[in-house]
Design a protein around this nucleic acid. Sequence first.
DNA 1: CGCATAACTAACCATGTGGTAAGTTCTGCC
DNA 2: GGCAGAACTTACCACATGGTTAGTTATGCG
Lengths: 218, 218
Amino acid sequence: MTSPDLDHVADDPPPPARRYTKGDRTKERIVEAAADLFSKSGYLAVSQRDIAAQAEITHAGLLHHFPGGKDELLMQVLERRDADDAVVLFDEHLDAWGHLDQTVRIVERNARTPGLVALYAKLSNEASDVNHPAHTYFRRRYEILREHFATVLGELVDRHGDRSALDPDTVAQQLIALLDGLQTQWLLAPETIDMRARLVDFLALLGVDTTGWRTDSA
Amino acid sequence: MTSPDLDHVADDPPPPARRYTKGDRTKERIVEAAADLFSKSGYLAVSQRDIAAQAEITHAGLLHHFPGGKDELLMQVLERRDADDAVVLFDEHLDAWGHLDQTVRIVERNARTPGLVALYAKLSNEASDVNHPAHTYFRRRYEILREHFATVLGELVDRHGDRSALDPDTVAQQLIALLDGLQTQWLLAPETIDMRARLVDFLALLGVDTTGWRTDSA
DNA sequence: CGCATAACTAACCATGTGGTAAGTTCTGCC
DNA sequence: GGCAGAACTTACCACATGGTTAGTTATGCG
């Protein structure tokens, strides 16, 4: 197509964009394919060959990058998503209200990405089997989430402590349960369920004033 | 073992207990096996042969009774359970408080039957795929549940209407979400989550006085 | 009793699965 | 340029799956 000299120019410049070896790039392609398919069909229903096909590779080629097969891939997918969430959830600079605000925004984002939501919803329940590859992952995930929200809610009670006997730990369990349960209903009937609105309702029930929060940020 | 005459006595008398043909009995055995395995491993992970084995039959034998395979079996399992729930949930004689009381008792029962809870938890999320055999079943199920609780909560607001601006429809969504979400956490960490207590907490938040309700009924 | 029919089983099939082995092509670095 | 090693592909394997067919055994009713 082009002369050798121009080709050299067309290539990604070595230092900035090309610290990825080709393998790294295909690895990412594979993880993305896996995330996509897992989202659509859950974990159990997807095969290595399915993922490989979507990543335009042979299933043996996939095994070359992920010898652990689907299990390894799954953890990769989960951790990648978690990294994103952690950034916004555990921002040290935010106070309790800020954290709750972030939570609402995550819900807003979820409402825009049904695939990922479906993945987590399916998996967090599939994973109740002790032998499921993601079992300990999800146990831990919920521990962390409960602790996080307990802290946030505790802070809230301390300062604005209107509703007395609210135990941060148990309310945290309820908050998380609400979010999960809303997802289940929303996935089955998106037009019927407004996850964000129900979250805000619940916060209001707790005595958190959410008036003045942005409705959306996109 | 016994003489023919005694045998005749030992047999189930034809009219009352023996209206079941042998096929009906094995059918029940199969459904029970299916329920058991689905509970342990979800729907997708279980094969016809698994179910057949547990019912002590060949997989071809199973197909003889349930030509529709797993799908047909699944619906059978779900409907069987629902029949039970419907009896207690939609009891015409109960008022709003009675219905909520029943709900609490169902949660108590759930806490004693992790298998069934796991089945519903896994399935209600697997079934978010439009092609899942139980998709419409679960859509409908949640519609009915939302309607039920909306009615109950509406009645509550009417009579004891302390907390004003509570919309029965949306609170119903929250209530159901809470129940589902609690199950997810409970299945992953049973020792950490007290589903009944969290439900009661939530009802209290709504202004429902639950003091004096039985702790357990077994 | 006897016999039609229900209730199976044994044996097969095509297909899809995860996994391995051996070979080929490509990359990127000296 | 050339070459070691990564990045694959092709071709297998053993096994499980859903489903069918043909044959065997049991049931229960006239």
